[in-house]
Simulated assay, not measured.
Amino acid sequence: MTPQNPETGTVASNGATEANAWPLFYREPRVLSSVEHAQWRVRPTGVGFAAASNSVPVVVGEFAAAARSYPLVFAGPDNTPLAVLGVEAGRNRFVNGDAWTDGAYVPAYVRRYPFVFVQTRDPEGYVLAIDAGSDAVIPSGEEGSPLFENGEPSELTRQALQFCDTFTREDQATRTFAAALAEQGLLIERSANIAFADGRRTSVDGFQVVDGEKFAALPDAVVVDWHRKGWLALVHFHLASLGRFNDLLTP
């Protein structure tokens, strides 16, 4: 598993985004402008865009909810937490057509699409962008909801701005948590060899999990500090979620 940066791309002063920094799902992020995108609208299209992704990033604020539906693992150079959505490459078993499986938690990373924050270089900060390559985005007409009304952000755009702001702050907290796990030497490489009932076999590798023995042996001072930060609970959610791998074997 090789996660892409969940947050964010980078934008230059002219509004252009750097393609090599685009996160998962995004093809043509455009910084929103009340002039350039005055007529743009967004229509509901479902979650078909996530059908080929067998994992997506999750942030610490959704560990409890996500752990009830998916295995949570860590991957990549930044030890990004991921919800595993399938054990076969190119298949998200929770997406059927344009719908997510009823009763399963929908990760915030999926819910924020087609919006995203991109990082500015001068001055340093974040601005709201939208994926112009999304089927949900239409440049004109009456279908869907407007991005701007009378030159001002619409309710849809304001909600997207708030959602992306919250996600970015959660992403920063998630990076701090993941770095602490690595600093304490708790993350260990794991792989899974999968045998399906119909005889097919596959393997999942390139991810890390928390070593339960090392976690139990943390110094008392670290335990107290992590308890106050809420990190002990996050580790327990993660460890409990690993039993969900068996759920991914069903058709």
Rank of each mutant, 00 (worst) to 15 (best):
A129T: 05
A129Q: 01
A129H: 03
A129D: 01
A129Y: 02
I130S: 01
I130L: 12
D131A: 11
D131K: 06
D131R: 05
A132R: 08
G133H: 02
G133K: 00
G133A: 05
S134T: 10
S134L: 08
A136W: 04
A136Q: 13
V137Y: 04
V137I: 15
V137P: 03
I138G: 06
I138T: 12
P139N: 10
S140G: 07
G141K: 14
E142R: 15
E142F: 11
G144F: 04
S145C: 01
P146K: 07
P146A: 11
P146S: 08
L147S: 02
F148V: 11
F148M: 12
F148R: 04
E149S: 09
E149R: 12
N150G: 02
N150L: 06
N150E: 13
N150M: 06
E152R: 15
E152V: 13
E152I: 08
E152K: 15
E152T: 15
E152D: 13
P153V: 12
P153S: 12
P153L: 12
S154R: 08
E155C: 00
E155R: 13
E155G: 02
E155N: 09
E155L: 11
T157D: 06
T157R: 04
T157P: 05
R158V: 00
R158P: 00
R158F: 01
R158Q: 14
A160E: 04
A160P: 04
A160H: 04
A160F: 05
A160I: 03
L161I: 06
L161V: 06
L161D: 07
Q162P: 00
Q162W: 07
F163Q: 08
F163T: 06
C164A: 11
C164V: 00
D165L: 10
D165F: 09
T166A: 15
F167K: 01
F167I: 02
F167L: 07
T168F: 08
T168G: 01
T168N: 10
